[in-house]
C-alpha cells in the first residue's frame, strides 16, 4: 500500500466459507492509518473471521486486499494470550524478543510506565486482576511497536475504573498508530472511535466516521426543549399540528418526528406562535447504540 495513503488497510469483496456456509459475503473495509476504528456487529456477524483474515490466520477470497507487507500487526484476542506462570516483565521481554525484527533493545521501564504496570511488574501474571492482565497483554503488543493493533473485545470483564484507564491508554496509543477494535460495548466504542464499520450478515453495511453515519442513517429527528410557560395542552396542540410525538422528561419536553428536513424550523415557529418562552432547545443526536439497533434489526 502507498505509504502516503490515508488508509492502512483496504479490503474489497472479502469472502469466506466454512463448510459450505458463506460467513463473509463480500466485505469492504478501510482502516485509516491513525486513530481508532470500531468494528461492530452482532454475534455471528463474522467479526472474528474478518480479524483472522486480516492476520492471514485463515484462507479467504478477495478482489482487493491491500496491506503494506512491512506493516507489523499486533493482535489481542478476547481470551488474552498470556503465559500465566511467567512474571510480567519476563512475559513482556519474551514477546518483544520473538516479535522484534531488529536488534533494538526493549525499553521495559518506559513500556511499563506507559501502561501503568509499575506496581505489578515483578508479579506472576496469574496473580493479577483481569484489568491488569488486559494491560499486560496490551503492553506486550506495544513492545514491538506494531503499526496496526487489532483488539477483540478489549473492555469485556473490566470494572468501570479499568475501562476508563484502558480507554485513555488506547486514545494515547492511537495518536501514533492505528487501532482496530471489535466490541459489543457501544458506549465505549462511541467514546473512543474516530470511525466505525458495522458488519451485518457477512457484509459491512456502514463504514465511516460516527457523525456522518449517524446523520446518514438518522430516520427521525429528536428535539429536547424546556419552557417557562408550557402546558401539556399547548404542547399537545403543537404536536397535533406538526404530526409529531412528544414525551415529558422532568421539566423538559422531547419531540420526535420523521420529518428530518423541516421539523426543527417548524417546531420553533410553532413555539413562537403559541407564545411559549423557550429556555433551552437542542437537537439530540442519535446514539451509537440506537443507530446500531436501527441498522441491524
Amino acid at each position: 500500500m502507498n505509504k502516503h495513503s490515508q488508509y492502512l488497510v483496504k479490503i474489497r469483496d472479502l469472502k469466506k466459507n466454512f463448510s459450505g456456509k458463506e460467513v463473509l459475503k463480500g466485505v469492504d473495509l478501510d482502516i485509516p492509518d491513525k486513530g481508532i476504528h470500531g468494528f461492530l456487529g452482532v454475534n455471528g456477524a463474522g467479526k472474528s473471521t474478518v480479524m483472522k483474515c486480516l492476520l492471514r490466520l485463515i484462507d479467504f477470497e478477495s478482489k482487493e486486499f491491500e496491506i503494506d507487507k512491512d506493516l507489523k500487526i499486533g493482535y489481542l484476542s478476547e481470551n488474552l494470550p498470556l503465559y500465566h506462570d511467567l512474571r510480567v516483565c519476563e512475559y513482556l521481554q519474551f514477546v518483544f524478543e520473538i516479535y522484534s525484527s531488529n536488534d533494538k533493545e526493549l525499553d521495559l521501564d518506559e513500556l511499563i510506565k506507559m501502561t501503568n504496570l509499575i506496581e505489578v511488574k515483578d508479579q506472576p501474571i496469574y496473580s493479577l486482576s483481569k484489568g491488569y492482565k488486559q494491560r499486560v497483554a496490551l503492553a506486550a503488543v506495544l513492545s514491538y511497536e506494531p503499526g496496526l493493533i487489532i483488539l477483540d473485545e478489549p473492555f469485556v470483564g473490566l470494572d468501570p475504573h479499568m475501562v476508563m484507564k484502558t480507554k485513555d491508554l488506547l486514545l494515547e496509543i492511537s495518536k501514533t498508530r492505528s487501532i482496530f477494535v471489535s466490541s459489543h460495548q457501544l458506549a465505549e466504542i462511541a467514546d473512543i472511535c474516530d470511525s466505525v464499520s458495522i458488519l451485518h450478515h457477512g457484509r459491512v453495511i456502514e463504514n465511516g466516521d460516527i457523525t456522518s453515519i449517524t446523520s446518514k442513517l438518522q430516520k427521525k429527528v429528536i428535539i429536547e426543549a424546556e419552557f417557562e410557560n408550557a402546558t401539556d395542552d399547548l404542547i399537545e396542540a403543537i404536536c397535533e399540528e406538526l404530526s409529531c410525538e412528544y414525551r415529558k422528561k422532568d421539566a423538559k419536553y422531547i419531540f420526535q418526528s420523521a420529518n428530518i428536513d423541516e421539523f426543527k424550523t417548524k417546531l420553533s415557529h410553532a413555539f413562537l406562535k403559541k407564545g411559549l418562552i423557550v429556555l433551552s432547545q437542542k437537537e439530540v443526536p442519535l446514539k451509537l447504540d440506537q443507530l446500531f439497533k436501527e441498522v441491524t434489526l
Binding site: L57, S77, P81, Y83, I98, S100, S101
Partner: peptide
C-alpha cells in the same frame, strides 16, 4: 487453550 499458540504463530518464530 490460552490462545498463546497464535501469539507464537504470528511471531518471527
Amino acid at each position: 487453550k490460552s490462545e498463546t499458540l497464535n501469539l507464537l504463530l504470528l511471531s518471527n518464530l
